[in-house]
Simulated assay, not measured.
Amino acid sequence: MNHYYTAFKAIALREMLRFLQQRERFLAALVRPLVWLLVFAAGFRAALGLSITPPYETYITYETYIVPGLCGMILLFNGMQSSLSLVYDREMGSMRLLLTAPLPRWFLLFSKLCGATFIGLLQCYAFLSIAGAFGISMPTVGYLAALPALLLAGIMLGALGLALSSFIKQLENFAGVMNFVIFPMFFLSSALYPLWKMAESSELLHDICALNPFTHAVELIRFALYAEINLMAAVSVFLTAIVFLSIAIWGYDPSRGMKRK
Rank of each mutant, 00 (worst) to 15 (best):
N2L: 02
T6G: 01
T6H: 03
R18M: 13
R23M: 10
R25H: 09
L34T: 11
V35W: 11
V35T: 15
V35R: 07
L37Y: 09
L38V: 14
L48N: 04
L48E: 04
P55K: 01
Y56S: 04
E57C: 07
T58C: 00
T58H: 10
Y59V: 13
Y62V: 10
E63D: 04
Y65Q: 03
Y65A: 03
V67P: 09
L70N: 03
L75R: 01
N78E: 12
Q81D: 12
Q81W: 13
Q81I: 10
Q81M: 11
S83Q: 03
L84M: 15
R90K: 15
M95P: 00
M95W: 05
M95N: 00
T100D: 08
P104D: 05
R105D: 02
W106P: 01
F110H: 02
F110P: 09
L113Q: 07
A126I: 06
A126N: 05
L128K: 07
S129Y: 13
S129D: 01
A133S: 10
A133E: 06
F134R: 09
G135A: 02
G135T: 08
G142Q: 07
A146C: 08
L147R: 06
L150C: 05
L152M: 13
G158W: 04
A163T: 08
A163W: 08
A163Y: 06
L164E: 04
S165I: 02
S166Y: 11
Q170H: 15
F180L: 13
I182E: 00
F183T: 14
M185G: 06
A191R: 05
W196H: 11
H206F: 13
A210H: 12
A210S: 14
L211C: 12
T215E: 04
T215F: 04
L220D: 02
L220I: 07
A227E: 12
A227R: 09
I229H: 08
L231S: 12
M232P: 03
V235K: 05
V237Y: 07
L239G: 02
A241T: 02
L245A: 14
W250Q: 14
M258V: 10
M258N: 12
K259G: 07
K261D: 14
K261Y: 12
